[in-house]
């Protein structure tokens, strides 16, 4: 019999997330998956899980979880106070939980979403190949409710477990001196790129797992466009010029011009940005974007093989 955790208190909003649904976009099925994919990957690596194991994604205030069996846990993402039966436990490191103990995830000082990985992964029923909750398409397990019982998979035997530095963990947090890097999008114009990269924006209250609408300035050359497949990070600019950056639960297709795309390595920063967070953009080449993405994967790979 596999072990379980019981959700004693749900927090603001907690969902199960993994790497998302792949290969069904042509049928209109969105990818979904962890909004801050870097932090989710770090959490899995710290407990020795495979990269596709499901984790919990919190939103601001996290849950209280009671473990029915011993487990190894890691909390990453937005830095939060973590406590085990009321005693402080370490953020970003392995936490050994004994049977019957309660793990409480607090409210982050900065950032929005914390990730809780449990050795063996959250083993809820996969839907269309993924355990992710898609909040827009309503596919996958519903957001957690108090009293839910979550099955845990068999703990990994792998001894290789990632030790994550504070610098690596903090790489997903918004910082005023670090603009989000973008590459030119399929509908980019020079005016659009200039207006996007020379002004300061602000994450509006209209921000969730689907996307983040930015306020404070407008982007030139927006408008409608023929319906086309979309990617996470796409910066859609409707006719009013107010940019919307697509996040994990975005619909498969969209009908607005995509002037730029936030690079995959920096998208977690936007997923961690609360409403009101100042946001600036900086253009980079596709090569630089791929190198940044590669650097993140190398951090994970080096650690997972050590």
């Amino acid at each position: 019999m596999s072990s379980v955790i019981v959700v004693e208190r749900v927090g603001l909003r907690t969902t199960v997330q993994d790497r998302g649904r792949i290969g069904l976009a042509h049928l209109g099925v969105p990818r979904s998956g962890a909004a801050d994919w870097r932090s989710a990957a770090f959490a899995n690596a710290i407990v020795g899980n495979p990269a596709d194991a499901a984790v919990l994604e919190t939103t601001l205030t996290g849950p209280t979880l009671r473990f029915e069996a011993p487990a190894t846990v890691a909390v990453t993402g937005a830095p939060v106070d973590v406590s085990l039966d009321g005693e402080p436990a370490e953020f970003g490191s392995q936490i050994r939980v004994s049977a019957g103990q309660r793990l409480t995830i607090g409210t982050p000082r900065v950032g929005l979403r914390a990730y809780v990985a449990v050795g063996g992964g959250i083993d809820v029923l996969a839907v269309l190949g993924s355990r992710s909750t898609d909040t827009l398409a309503r596919i996958g397990p519903p957001p957690l409710r108090s009293g839910d019982v979550l099955p845990i998979g068999a703990a990994p035997v792998a001894s290789s477990r990632l030790a994550v530095s504070e610098g690596m963990l903090a790489g997903v947090l918004p910082a005023s001196d670090r603009p989000l890097r973008v590459v030119r999008g399929p509908d980019a114009t020079d005016d659009a790129m200039r207006s996007l990269c020379s002004q300061s924006f602000c994450v509006s209250t209209n921000a969730d797992r689907v996307g983040a609408r930015l306020s404070g300035a407008t982007v030139d050359d927006g408008g409608e466009a023929p319906t086309s497949g979309m990617v996470r990070g796409a910066i859609q600019v409707p006719p009013d010029g107010g940019p919307v950056v697509l996040l994990a639960d975005h619909a498969v297709t969209g009908g607005y011009r995509v002037v730029a795309v936030v690079i995959d390595a920096d998208l977690p920063v936007l997923a961690q940005s609360r409403p009101g967070t100042p946001t600036r953009f900086q253009e980079v080449s596709t090569q630089q974007a791929r190198a940044a993405s590669e650097a993140v994967r190398r951090e994970l790979a080096v650690a997972s093989s050590s």
Binding site: I22, S228, M230
Partner: peptide, 18 residues
């Protein structure tokens, strides 16, 4: 190749990162 997504005037091809 993760996804091949037809649209109005184009077909989007998404690759696995890396």
């Amino acid at each position: 190749i993760d996804e091949v997504v037809p649209g109005e005037n184009g077909v989007l091809v998404c690759f696995a990162p890396g």
